[in-house]
């Protein structure tokens, strides 16, 4: 295999993602690892794994863009961009047209509005609060002693989701215990937690036009796609590999940057 490589690496609060693309923007490799505490090391590890999958070398990468909270720790990146820009870039690439991007991350949520040409019109991040983020679901899973990866299946089996009234993660956990004491079935409690996430996300901003949902939380919990569509009253789009959207956007930025310097 030959040809130039373009790299995007997204060091998020929970997971580090790396994507390699070619000159036609086709994805050649994807790698995800837990972010851990050594951002520089995890970025390097992701890179080595991706190159290993392809049997390629680092010197074949023309440009690399880093994004996410750990973007400044990625030593091999040539430039940096915010995850807001990168998610917008990738979503416009995958779903051309005027769209509203909803990214549900481990630590924060973003809403990004793009016009027909993919230009960013506005963006919004969640307040300094875990409600509506992946961290909320992690907390709930921990309290219920349910492995994270089982949350989705349990929620999908719910017949009568409970309604959680609390904004606060701590108060929501107390509320959940109260429901369990009253005999509410576990799947209904977990479905209620997912509905709470959907509600917190949708109240962040008006969501005009086609809504595209990305991020690790929706990648691991397809139930959210259903809940968001139902609450919004119209279908949302979840692009393939939603957890890699930020990294893909960074790789597309890398490709653009290399062309600008020609």
């Amino acid at each position: 295999m030959s040809g130039a490589l373009y790299c995007g690496v997204d060091i998020g609060a929970s997971a580090a993602k790396l994507v390699l693309i070619d000159e036609s923007s086709a994805v050649l490799a994807r790698v995800v690892e837990s972010s851990g505490v050594d951002y520089a090391g995890i970025a390097q590890s992701c890179l080595e794994r991706a190159l290993g999958q392809l049997g390629r070398h680092a010197d074949e990468i023309v440009w690399c863009v880093a994004t996410g909270y750990g973007r400044n720790n990625v030593e091999f990146a040539k430039s940096r961009a915010t995850e807001i820009l990168c998610h917008g870039k990738a979503c416009h690439h995958l779903v051309p047209g005027a769209i509203t991007v909803v990214d549900i991350g481990g630590q924060d949520n973003k809403i990004i509005r793009l016009d027909e040409q993919g230009r960013q019109l506005e963006f919004k991040m969640n307040r300094k609060c875990a409600a509506g983020t992946g961290a909320f679901l992690e907390e709930i899973a921990l309290r219920l002693r349910v492995p994270l990866e089982q949350l989705d299946a349990l929620a999908q089996s719910s017949t009568q989701p409970v309604r959680l009234g609390s904004f606060c993660t701590v108060f929501a956990k107390t509320e959940i215990l109260s429901h369990l004491r009253q005999g509410v079935a576990l799947p209904d409690v977990i479905a209620g937690a997912f509905e709470s996430v959907a509600s917190r996300v949708l109240e962040m901003d008006a969501l005009p036009g086609q809504v595209v949902v990305t991020g690790g939380v929706v990648a691991h919990n397809p139930v959210l796609e259903k809940l968001l569509s139902r609450t919004l009253g119209r279908s949302v789009i979840v692009p393939p590999y939603p957890q890699f959207t930020g990294a893909l956007g960074a790789a597309l930025c890398a490709l653009e940057s290399s062309r600008k310097t020609l």
């Binding site: 807001i84 820009l85 960013q120 963006f123 991040m125 300094k128």
Partner: peptide, 14 residues
């Protein structure tokens, strides 16, 4: 600080 930094940088990118 991190959220503020990201938001400010995203505004400048825009």
């Amino acid at each position: 600080e991190e959220q503020a930094r990201t938001q400010l940088e995203a505004l400048l990118e825009q």
